[in-house]
Amino acid sequence: MSLEDPLYHITPVQQAAASCTGAVLTSLLVTPLDVVKIRLQAQHRLSQNVSNKCFLYCNGLMDHFCGCTPNNGQKHWFQRPGHFNGTIDAFIKITKNEGIYSLWSGLGPTLVLALPTTILYFVTYEQLRLRLKNLYNRNNVEGQERKQPYWIPLISGATARIFAVSVVSPLELIRTKMQSRKISYAEINESLKLLIKQDGIKGLWKGVFPTLGRDVPFSAIYWMNYETIKGFFGSDTPTFGVSFFAGAVSGGIAAFATVPFDVVKTHQQIEIGEKTLYTDKPQRTKRTAQIIREIYRHSGIKGLYAGLVPRLVKVAPACAIMISSFEYGKVFFYRLANPDSDIFNSSKENLQSNK
């Protein structure tokens, strides 16, 4: 018996709840690491008197633009004074001087947009994967369920990411504008009208292609490897530990393979962010090929793999937390509706028998 069997599928609403739980847990556990990293980066920037730039960071779920200019005379959370000598020192001083809650600065805006994005992404992936798998087995003349081929999670992951990013992209543009400074809804409305007038309705998706250029290959590689590793353990209903391990390894592989995409995407998004944050008139940005040539000319191949270690350190545990919470959530909702089922115990027995 397996959750892969159509008789035991949970509903899309239950899948959404499972992914929502994973998103909250990932944000809660990973955000402090990024807050410390950003405070260290901002400290370095301010020491260089960089006052008219923005930078990009990701807390494991989504990217954020941070502008370094004061917000109507008030400093942003990442501009608070501090003299940190390293990561551990920053953790101690922030907790002692500003309170432990400061380690979760910016969590609210993250969850507002991350939750719907994550729900769209995971529910779309799961629904599409199961439908493709059922279609694949329906054409089997032998009448027996065949092992899921690698191309099903690959296509499902890429398609789900395209859908989630495309739907949420206009909201991300508005959020970026609102976070840059205090701005009224009337001013946002005027900015959006100007953007649409100059670039058409496609202007609402400004910056979406750099995001897709990184996230679609990442999702395709991640899900293909995750489903493959999960299959090695001989169960379609993995334990929490198996999901955590498979998620961490798959996330690491996908992160490594897409570092050049991430570097190019960061350059493009920072340029788009600065023009969004500091100007009301839309401007043209550099093309992907142009940015790749510039990076290669100045830094060579190493430049395209800049930030590899920090990306691996952050992405692997974030993927592990997210997918293990999602998989466990699916089992939880199934058992909630079927308290007498032995499906979870069966997966453990299958795992032990394969050892």
Rank of each mutant, 00 (worst) to 15 (best):
R311D: 06
T285K: 02
F232I: 08
A289F: 03
L312T: 05
Y296N: 09
Q283W: 15
P317Y: 09
D236A: 04
K265H: 02
S299E: 15
V249A: 05
G234T: 06
R297V: 00
G234L: 03
G241P: 04
H267P: 06
S250N: 09
H298Q: 11
P282Y: 08
G251C: 07
F256H: 04
T266Y: 05
F244E: 06
V264M: 11
I253L: 15
A248F: 14
Q268R: 14
D280V: 10
M322C: 11
F244L: 13
I253E: 01
F256E: 06
E274Y: 14
Q290W: 02
E274W: 10
I295T: 06
T266L: 07
R284V: 04
G252F: 10
I295N: 04
G251R: 13
K275C: 07
A316P: 14
G273K: 07
T288L: 11
I321S: 13
Q283R: 15
A246T: 00
G234M: 00
L308M: 14
T279H: 09
V249R: 02
Q268I: 06
I321P: 10
L308Q: 09
A306P: 06
I301M: 07
F256D: 00
T239F: 07
P317R: 08
M322L: 15
G273M: 08
T239E: 02
A316T: 15
V249M: 02
V313E: 00
Y278R: 15
G300L: 01
P317D: 11
R284L: 09
E294A: 07
A318L: 08
L277E: 14
M322Q: 13
D280K: 15
S235L: 09
M322P: 05
E294M: 04
P238Y: 11
F245A: 13
E274N: 13
A254P: 01
S299L: 01
S250A: 11
T258R: 02
H298V: 03
G247A: 04
G273A: 13
R284Q: 15
K302P: 02
H298C: 11
L304P: 03
T258A: 01
T258D: 00
A246P: 04
S235R: 14
T285N: 14
V315S: 09
F232T: 10
Y278A: 13
Q269R: 10
I291H: 00
Q268M: 14
P310Q: 04
C319M: 10
V242E: 12
P260S: 03
L308C: 10
R293I: 03
Q268E: 14
G307N: 04
A246H: 06
R284P: 13
L277T: 12
A320H: 11
V242N: 05
R293N: 05
A289C: 05
S243K: 03
L277S: 14
T239D: 12
T288K: 08
A254V: 02
R297E: 00
V315T: 14
V264F: 08
V242H: 12
C319R: 12
V315A: 13
I292E: 04
K302T: 01
P310T: 06
I272H: 15
Y296V: 08
K265E: 07
K265S: 11
